[in-house]
Nucleic acid binder design. Structure first.
Lengths: 207, 207, 207, 207
DNA sequence: GATGAATGAGTTTTCATTCAT
DNA sequence: GATGAATGAAAACTCATTCAT
């Protein structure tokens, strides 16, 4: 780990920053950006307000950092899951499975990430939306490349462009996972997802 | 029009309310709930602040009314579009086409509607989220019933439950329309949509 | 009654004014000047706000009129009670008895009158305090004249100036009646009063 | 003084709080609760509005604290004055004298205290009236106990219950002191008071 | 370097008063 | 003459941010 080699002072800083973001995540995901005050974050994380401002220029910055890191963690996890196999179908199965797990285990992070994307304060949170979008777009490209490689190796029919298929798979998994996230009692967790993927694969696979 | 037969006073009231909501729509859709002040709405709509409060109990109420009416208008338009034909495939084509038109022509309304759904202030805007979700769920059922009737008449294969198919079609159209809404320059408007529907229909239609 | 001979229009006006003041009395006595709005008075009295302003220049004026008329009614009643006898002791007994009845039967008026006197908005309610004080002073003089005449007729000992005695009797009756007004369950109504007067008279009467 | 041993920070806090209350006392006593704004208090006390809210939850709370502390200071002073002697008559003389001095030297506090008692916003200032009344009742009991002990030691005749006598003496002193407070030019300060007490004592003392 | 007290701009909301109908 | 819709000044209160200790 890189942490090991950092001077103690630096390591400590990182630990504090992490703690601040963890507390912020809990609060923001629960109440939304405008219903959380810096004092609340300070109190719950047991830092002084001024210390928060040592780590983040202002409230917006703290929020941006949080959302972007949440986005990166999310996308990293998905990318890694796909990298675990060389087989395109297996990659997609991993994507769906791990995304499901991620929603289940990181509901707060997911909520903050999606609020940052399609959230309340549109153009206002200047920059954030754009940066999130870039990351999102980047990930969609990664996903698209799986479809592309599958097509090149003639494992998938070219029923649509790889990009379209990536957008489709991504939005479908989102939709079903949100159903579950918002009303777990009505939408039992993993089954829906497999159904989706199976249908898509059935249409895709060369007979 | 019912408007004609209302007493003049009532008609005038309605006109004012509409104007207030129209201005609010513009501001909220552009800047988000928390970045619009009542003074701003008053000024831009050329009413006094007090007058706004004659029509809406408070800021939250104004916002709720706006979002709910926007949701109703949206769903009504889609439902009507589907009612224009008795043929299930035609119904779905109408849904996709009209939804596309609606996104194109009512970007502000769409933004406010979706912000209200997956928006910023989760449990905070008590009631709103729940009401929106009810309406959304109701609409999904309407869409599902199209798939169901298609299946009963053996026009569609039963590749998934009608409810799943409705969620799928809805989220796919959202996804592609948002791509266009957010970056029209990269995503030429109507073509994507047809592609989606065609793929879905190909999988659905009995050969 | 003078009312009879007024033109109908005038009589009607007077009736309306009375109604406004009656409703205002109820509201002001219950909630205090600042917690009653002109709209509330208008609604409860079933007049339009504008009509209120036809009768009273503004809210302050309405309140002043109310308090002063309440003061006059109160003092008139007491003065009349004392006029019913020529005997000084009987006059004082009447004063005490009728004052007690008045507190019991016009709690709202009493509250408004005393709030206007020693109330919340000191110098602010410009003029009111002064006018009330004048009336109050005038009444104290009336009461003092009873003691004075009793002294001149050698029925009372000159244990203090008539003015001092008037102030004393007045404040004592106020004190005991307020005890009852504020906590009737702890302070049974009429007995206390008689005790007071008897003590005072015992000290006063020539043996 | 306990102040000496408090940490500097605490002492500073107390000093600020005192300053805020002092300025508030001046303003409230002059204009009444509803005619003083938090901004006004902030400006005159040279604190920021937000700082006021650090010390007092809201305007009502600030006012309540002010009135209750004023009441306590008043009653403490009177109680101490009576404790200075063991002789009942001397106790009463001290009470009257010190009360007079207190009215003379703390007119503002007295005004605020009495406004809080029989003041403007009856049931509205929920809690305040009740708390004031409790303190007032407590003090009346203290005063009554002087009469009671005087009776037990056969220094006073039992012309009335100790409680009645306490209410009487208290209301009489109030009445005469208010005359002076409101129109010092007409009512030279201390004489009236002695007269009152002397009359009362004459009636009370065993011959 | 950390702290948290102090700041005051900015927000929502109320309500006395006016005046066109 | 009565009405009550419209007005907007003014109030209470919050909270991101700063900076002296």
């Amino acid at each position: 780990m890189a942490d090991r080699v950092l001077p103690r002072r630096e390591r400590e800083k990182l630990r504090q920053r992490k703690e601040m973001l963890a507390v912020s995540l809990g609060l923001f995901s629960e109440k939304g950006y405008h219903n959380v005050s810096m004092h609340e974050i300070a109190e719950k994380s047991e830092f002084a307000v001024g210390t928060l401002y040592k780590f983040f220029k202002n409230k917006k910055d703290l929020y941006k950092a949080l959302v972007l890191e949440e986005a990166d963690r999310f996308h990293d996890r998905l990318t890694k899951a796909m990298d675990e196999s060389d087989d395109e179908i297996e990659k997609l199965r991993n994507f769906v499975r791990v995304k499901g797990e991620y929603f289940r285990d990181n509901a707060a992070g997911i909520r903050v990430y999606f609020a940052g994307t399609r959230g309340a304060d549109f153009n206002v949170m200047a920059g954030l939306t754009a940066q999130i979008r870039d990351r999102h777009y980047g990930f969609i490209q990664t996903l698209a490349s799986v479809f592309e490689s599958g097509m090149q190796r003639n494992r998938f029919k070219k029923i649509a462009t790889p990009y379209h298929l990536a957008v489709a798979l991504n939005s479908l998994t989102n939709a079903f996972l949100f159903l579950w996230l918002e009303a777990p009692e009505h939408h039992p967790y993993p089954n829906d997802l497999d159904i989706i993927l199976d249908i898509l694969l059935k249409g895709l696979k060369e007979s």
